[in-house]
Design a protein around this nucleic acid. Structure first.
Length: 865
RNA sequence: GGGCGCGUGGCUCAGCGGUAGAGCAUCCGCUUCACACGCGGGGGGUCGAUGGUUCGAUUCCAUCCGCGCCCACCA
């Protein structure tokens, strides 16, 4: 084994090995030596490529990051040791709303896109109460400035944790490369008619004043109330009493002015006579038809609902399928817009009264308008009974604070509905880890309600690379966008000028305007394989890494990141983006609640790493099975401490093995051969399981072997290796120990990169992380074949050791108490070839196997000779 | 309402057809020449409930209960 006896590399051991300082020491060395550099000369079959999740840099770091990124790193390190060139870049997700919000608070500014760029702008020293308005380019500069700082902190953490990333390949979702990819892909989709714009009702956040996508919704339980409202039949006056009136129930009475119809189920006998007739809205006297639609649920409320433009997504469906008019009242900022009743579209039987009522609502937020209109309805006796308080789920933008509204606006979409079947088929081609996560993906695809809205009315994002011509009449013609040539990308239409125009023609009749919007952050993040892999910019690299091998990510973003990446790759390349998707869970607090800043239960990882060592923290991460959601208690970081102890044990066991590593020679002793046979079987198992991404099991098995290696095997061979018997026996023990140590270090290397590298450096050249992954062939070579007989010797020795220790402890004898005579049951007899080691380790003078049920020990009173 | 996962000793979890496992915690013992950041040992579980398949079930199937997550056109 040239592997374990390299005369060129002398053993050098520290007197008192310790974990402290290993992170700094080895990170510096790895950076210097380019240990994790991607070898881009290797062809695709020899490459293992990873589509790293770019963390949101404006968010705070917590143990969940450390947890899931460790899993990916273990896989990366395994494949690197298997001989692959590992493509493992890091990305930063810095565009988007979270960064905008952080910049606003950090610098005390707000973006006003109407302002011109001020090259001399400096943010206030300390943020004032009133935010300073800045131009969009200035705002973007501040975003870039702050994310640079955040990215430094992230990189420091990742390095400290020991991620084997090639830092020369880092990208950011706002950098030029990402913008170019994102814009080019969009333009190609536009050309093919897959990206399109539409004036349509869209989910809208009134605080951020932007459209949001279905994937960004979440339901939150909110207090509300059912209001029973009376609609009179057409032709009846207010004074005509209640006969023939229709009662509906609504949680949003403030939308009565936006009501365009009532709807009931076609088979509902109660309302059947009304279909085709008209009723009038209370307060506003607007005539609205009563219609039939299968979505109306006779069980809900009174069985008949009012359709408003727009109260919820069902309204949109009804509005579209029943071809109803629009009567929108909610403005982008969430308040009710001014309306002139009696004008076209706002017909009323009593325009004066309608105006009087409406004027009390105009300008109010939806919530305030609701309170006011309830009073008005009560006064006009159109409210039946009192509102009944309820709690019901309301749709929110996941980052928003107020319920979403639905607002009609011009937005860009990417077609998804047309590709549902193919997406499902592609999803089945991906290997999911764990397998059951595929259901989440299919669930989502099956539940898609509409095409993907990708435009956002925000500032820090990738702009749409489009301008629109302005007609001689000053009207913008959105139907004929001006498109830049691909080589010009990336462009910012707010500063760049379309070909054939001059800057002075901006916003002028006969000139142009830039598209003011930016793309949804997922519209760029869905292209991370293309961005990282050099699509468009580095075809040579692209050939070597795409489709990628692995997408690791959290299961909470299957519907966003995973789904959109599959979609974009399908649309762009008719290909899967990667072959494997590994979904890691997230860390829960001790009460099994998801960690989040708002709950205040976030644990920051740096202190943990410093206190217990990166290897200890990585051990905890790796011990959770794929997809699992571990609970973590900072006050009782059990598994981290266990990991730290394991790392320390590795230091000490290695020191023991190397302390007196001579003489060396053929591995002839059955005990040694049995131990190595056992180890070689572990290696086969570990390799297969890591190929299947089952890192947790491999760690558990390796660790179990290692502890018994230390506690049983090393104890058993101690006397022999110190030369108490023959030179050949000592040589056999030493050589076996070194083979085992070399193998174990490499098995542990993906999990505990620092301690294994440290120990490797005591006696082996190069980095353990570039060493080849152990194979059973190695161990088998060292002993000339799988030795099943020796394995039995080894296993029976271990069992007998446990038995004798138990009896000695029960007899309350100190461990060193000699045993004059030990009678062991015959089942232990197979250990006989190792009897000398066994007797020495257990201090047994006379060993007998007999037909007894239990071992019998006779203790000697005098100490061992 | 649909889907998925999980329910194993005080805690965190592994096992998944053949007499219950680990670590932590707890208790007892040991200054054993690699390690007291250590070593050895003990106690502690009718494996959520009920049926079924089987010679045999914690392990397979069905139903139910509890917890969690994802999804859904909840007026």
């Amino acid at each position: 084994m040239s592997d374990v006896s390299d005369p060129q590399h002398p053993i050098s051991l520290p007197d008192k090995p310790a974990l402290e300082g290993l992170e700094a020491k080895w990170n510096a060395r790895w950076a210097e030596n380019g240990t994790y550099r991607f070898d881009r000369r290797r062809a695709r079959p020899e490459v293992y490529s990873i589509d790293t999740p770019p963390p949101t840099v404006s968010g705070s770091l917590h143990v969940g990051h450390v947890f899931s990124y460790t899993h990916t790193d273990i896989v990366a390190r395994f494949h690197r040791m298997r001989g692959k060139a590992v493509f493992y870049p890091m990305g930063w997700d810095d565009n988007g709303l979270p960064t905008e919000r952080r910049v606003q608070n950090y610098y005390g500014v707000k973006c006003d896109p109407s302002l011109p760029y001020d090259p001399a702008f400096e943010p206030p020293q300390t943020p004032g109460k009133q935010p300073v308005a800045v131009s969009r380019p200035n705002f973007v500069e501040l975003c870039l400035q702050l994310t640079k700082e955040d990215e430094k902190a992230f990189e420091h953490l990742w390095r400290y944790l020991g991620l084997s990333v090639d830092w020369s390949m880092t990208y950011a979702t706002i950098d030029r490369r990402a913008q170019r990819v994102s814009q080019a892909s969009f333009l190609r989709l536009l050309k093919r008619g897959i990206a399109y714009q539409l004036e349509a009702p869209t989910l809208w956040d009134v605080d951020f004043r932007t459209a949001v996508a279905q994937a960004e919704l979440e339901d939150r339980e909110q207090p509300g109330a059912y209001h029973r409202i009376r609609f009179r039949r057409q032709g009846q006056s207010t004074a005509a009493g209640t006969h023939g009136a229709v009662e509906i129930e609504t949680t949003r009475p403030e939308l009565i002015p936006a009501c365009v119809a009532l709807v009931a189920h076609p088979d509902d006998e109660r309302y059947r006579p009304l279909f085709g007739t008209e009723v009038v809205t209370p307060l506003f006297g607007a005539p609205v038809p009563v219609r039939a639609h299968a979505l109306a649920d006779p069980e809900k409320g009174t069985g008949i609902a009012m359709i408003c433009t727009f109260g919820d997504l069902t309204d949109v469906t009804w509005w579209r399928e029943l071809t109803l008019p629009v009567r929108a009242v909610i403005m982008p900022n969430g308040t009710l817009r001014p309306v002139a009743w009696g004008t076209p579209g706002w017909e009323s039987g009593d325009a004066t009264r309608a105006q009087q009522a409406y004027d009390q609502l105009a300008g109010l937020s939806a919530t305030k308008a609701r309170m006011r209109i309830v009073e008005l309805l009560r006064e006009s006796a159109d409210l039946v009974g009192e509102p009944k308080p309820i709690t019901h789920p309301v749709k929110f933008y996941e980052k928003g604070d107020r319920p979403l509204e639905i607002i009609t606006s011009r937005q860009w979409f990417i077609k998804t509905m047309a590709h549902r079947e193919e997406l499902l088929a592609r999803g089945r081609e991906i290997t999911w880890h764990p397998e059951y996560m595929r259901h989440r993906f299919e669930n989502w695809v099956n539940g898609l309600a509409g095409d993907w809205c990708i435009s956002r009315q925000r500032f820090f994002g990738v702009p749409f690379p489009l301008w629109y011509p302005v007609g001689a009449d000053g009207v913008v013609d959105y139907s004929r966008p001006l498109v830049p040539d691909e080589p010009r990308l990336p462009i910012d239409p707010s500063t760049d000028v379309p070909d054939g125009y001059g800057q002075e023609q901006r916003r002028e009749p006969g000139g142009f305007v830039g598209d003011p919007d930016v793309m949804d952050t997922w519209a760029t993040s869905s292209l991370t394989p293309q961005i990282a892999g050099g699509w468009l910019s580095d075809p040579d690299l692209w050939e070597r890494v795409f489709p990628m091998d692995l997408r690791p990510q959290g299961h909470d973003i299957i519907r966003t990141w995973l789904f959109t990446t599959v979609l974009r790759s399908l649309l762009e390349h008719k290909s899967l983006p990667w072959f494997n998707a590994a979904l890691s869970g997230f860390v829960l607090d001790p009460d099994r609640k998801k960690m989040s800043k708002s709950k205040g239960n976030v644990v920051t990882p740096m202190a943990l790493l410093e206190q217990f060592g990166s290897d200890g923290v990585r051990y905890w991460s790796a011990s959770v099975r794929p997809g699992g959601d571990p609970a973590f208690d900072v006050n009782d970081p059990g598994q981290i401490k266990v990991g730290r102890r394991l790392a320390i044990k590795i230091l000490n066991a290695a020191r023991f093995a190397l302390l007196q590593a001579e003489p060396r020679g053929p591995i002839i002793e059955p005990l040694d051969r049995g131990m190595l046979t056992s180890l070689s079987r572990l290696v086969d198992e570990a390799t297969a399981q890591l190929e299947a991404y089952d890192y947790a099991r491999v760690l558990e098995r390796t660790e179990r072997f290692f502890w018994s290696f230390c506690d049983d095997y090393l104890e058993l061979v101690k006397a022999r290796r110190y030369g108490d018997f023959t030179t050949e026996g000592a040589a056999s023990a030493n050589s076996a120990m070194l083979v085992a140590l070399s193998t174990l270090l490499r098995l542990f290397a993906p999990y505990l990169p620092f301690v294994t590298e440290e120990v490797w450096s005591w006696w082996r050249p190069g980095s353990v992380h570039q060493a080849r992954w152990p194979s059973s062939v190695e161990a088998v070579e060292a002993i000339g074949g799988d030795d099943a007989a020796a394995l039995t010797v080894f296993l029976q020795s271990q069992a007998a050791v446990a038995d004798v220790r138990r009896l000695k402890a029960l007899a309350k004898r100190p461990a060193k108490t000699p045993i004059a005579r030990a009678v062991l049951p015959a089942r232990f007899e197979p250990l006989a070839p190792a009897a000398r080691d066994f007797q020495a380790a257990m201090h047994i003078r006379e060993l007998v196997f007999a037909d007894v049920a239990e071992s019998e020990l006779t203790f000697a009173e005098e100490p061992v000779a």
